[in-house]
Write a protein that binds this DNA or RNA. Structure first.
Lengths: 217, 217, 217, 217
DNA sequence: AAATAACCGAGACGGTACGTCTGGTCTTTTT
DNA sequence: AAAAAGACCAGACGTACCGTCTCGGTTATTT
């Protein structure tokens, strides 16, 4: 992910090369406070007045940041949204449980909660990002990347289940993942996100679907 | 549907007041030619330069229409998109076939073809509409309505199949429809629409899923 | 305010051209009532919201007249203003009095009262007409004509005075008229119209000026 | 005068609130080049196609300026006209001469030349400003101010003349100035501006008028 | 300590699209 | 045939954002 930080070059996250923490250039560094202020302003504006009121101008003003600063690090509105999403997603832990069903329920519940307005509230942002990705290839790539992250987690869950023999023999895992994701995604896009307590039943249904899908190909 | 015609109202059906067959107003009527020109211009602009170049200003200029006329009948860009979509969808016939599989394949193929760039090209428009429906409740309603139309067709297919005993006993039709729609929709939104020849396999998978889902609830 | 309502009143003006005044009963002809309604509407709109709110559209609507009708007889806003002015001016009687001073005071008082907001209120209209006459030659001509009417009255007053020997010998009457008119006009244009009771003193001053001007050329 | 510069204002005098001494940086400054370009464009458009073609849109386009910039500093067309007038008037020097007559002729000739199409061409602009001042109080104030400038010069001329004993005893200077200005103004408004060589005779007449006016009040 | 380089806030700038309003013309129905 | 009602094309209006740029001022490194 990390759209919008590429210009910074070596960004010393958790010090990768300890000891050799030397900068390659002089001058003041990017302000962490400003970054936080801008993302906060973005979230606040969306929360208060909807995505329609999300204006680069307004974000800059509210964050008491210069427009140049804003544009330097987040060239488009989509970058701001992605910034919010990835900030929120950092909290989502890889689910571990006793079996496939349990892990899947945990995973889906986390995800749906992150999306829901009464949770992380990321749903509409994701929706907006997908829409804009049509006319913004860079954003499309970033979303693909974002999807891959969720993908990886799901892959690990399924592979562990397969190793435990919890999945029908010969199941195409890639197709299975598509199938598992499509349902909540459809609900997200049609604004009918399930409540957390409904997730268990949805997973149940999906697993039944997987069973029926078995043996193909 | 028919967003953007609401101002025209009911144009004299059968004479409401017999004997005194009065019109409610005099004056010129809405021009059919202008309506066609505007939708054509919309389609052309999107085809040539993408949704980003779709400007109310540009549409009016290209259609040689006044901006006031444009705004009178299509208050937002989304109304234009919906106009296009409903114009294209008129062609889609209710599929009829020998059995569930055949009808479903026909239905899905029609739908996917309508969406694909090498078909009706409506996919991106729909995507855009869903995105904008977040901040536009009126549009959200229109989309719900649009979904309902597809829904109805699908319902009829499933009910005929159930009557023929092609579906497992006790299947929740509503859940089944959601399941059937979610996969192609997900592919639409993630810009991985299946090619028409892949649809048959997708339907196959979905039907397997339905079998596994059987007996629930 | 009940201006511009009675479209259906009895249209019997004083028959201008007797005999030929009859029209076939099919189809309406230009109605005196409509003309009055339009001028009334014009006056009302200006009175209520200022010249800025004077719109051909608004005039037509208020007078319950079609825009085409309006444009047929009053092609520009200026024509409407001139219509108002000439309607109001019809009332101004040729002043007659015992001497030059008396007639002049009567004439000027009439004129200034016609201009003042607390009188006929024609002042601002005249101002507007003069302004627009810059870019509207037709209007310029109409104003010249309008000026000529006032001119004629003033000429008669001065000629009677000269015959009575009330004016210095050898006075250039044309220059005198210019001189007499320029002062009130200047006050009109600079929005400092004298109150009626100030007119006498102004005339006094002007007459003194005329005396000083005497004997020239 | 200085309409349309109010936002530039006085830039922070001495620090108002000690203790919380906020930064003094203000960002980019107003561009002189743009100001000149806009006034030039205004003049050119009027010269080429008349006041009717004077459109904010056209001015911005011709000056290659953004509309926002234009509106920021010249909120209305009238402000543009005033800008032109005050730019042109800057050149007009205070006339000095041997006596009242000479100074008055110089003053009036300068003024009339500034107004005439074959001179500064400001006449029609002034006419337009006066007209619009009816419905624009801010403009009315600006014009009052503009008048005051001319007024001051005239006052000085008259006071010098009075000191030299060139004026009748007891003359009301204020009334005299009104009288002197009203004639050329009337000619301006009625589009009959005197040629420069006629000014001397007009001044002659006016002075005669002043003599006649003497001894009043 | 001075010079340098990159950052920052503020905000003016040239542009473009917005949605509204008005000007005139043309069409349809009524009188 | 003239008039009402009103839809139409055209385009200016004033506003809001866009993304770029310039202006002073602030840190931090390098010399």
């Amino acid at each position: 992910m990390d759209l919008g930080k590429e210009k910074h070059g070596s960004p010393q996250g958790p010090a990768e090369i300890s000891g050799d923490d030397r900068r390659s250039s002089v001058g003041a560094r990017r302000s962490e406070a400003t970054e936080a202020a801008i993302l906060d302003a973005t979230a606040a504006l969306i929360a208060e007045s909807g995505y329609g009121a999300l204006t680069m101008e307004a974000v800059a003003k509210r964050a008491r940041a210069g427009k140049a600063t804003l544009y330097r690090w987040w060239p488009t509105k989509a970058h701001l949204l992605l910034g919010l999403i990835s900030r929120a997603k950092g909290a989502m832990p890889p689910p571990r449980g006793a079996g496939l069903r349990e892990e899947l329920v945990a995973y889906m519940t986390d995800m749906v909660t992150l999306w829901r307005t009464d949770g992380g509230g990321m749903g509409p942002l994701i929706r907006q990002c997908y829409a804009e990705s049509w006319s913004n290839p860079e954003l499309a790539l970033a979303l693909q990347e974002e999807r891959r992250a969720r993908w990886t987690m799901l892959t690990e869950i399924l592979e562990r289940a397969e190793a435990r023999g919890e999945l029908p023999h010969g199941l195409d895992l890639s197709r299975a993942k598509d199938f598992l994701m499509s349902w909540p995604f459809y609900r997200l896009m049609t604004d009918r996100l399930p409540r957390p307590e409904e997730v268990a039943q949805m997973v149940e249904d999906s697993l039944s679907g997987l069973q029926g899908m078995a043996g193909q190909r």
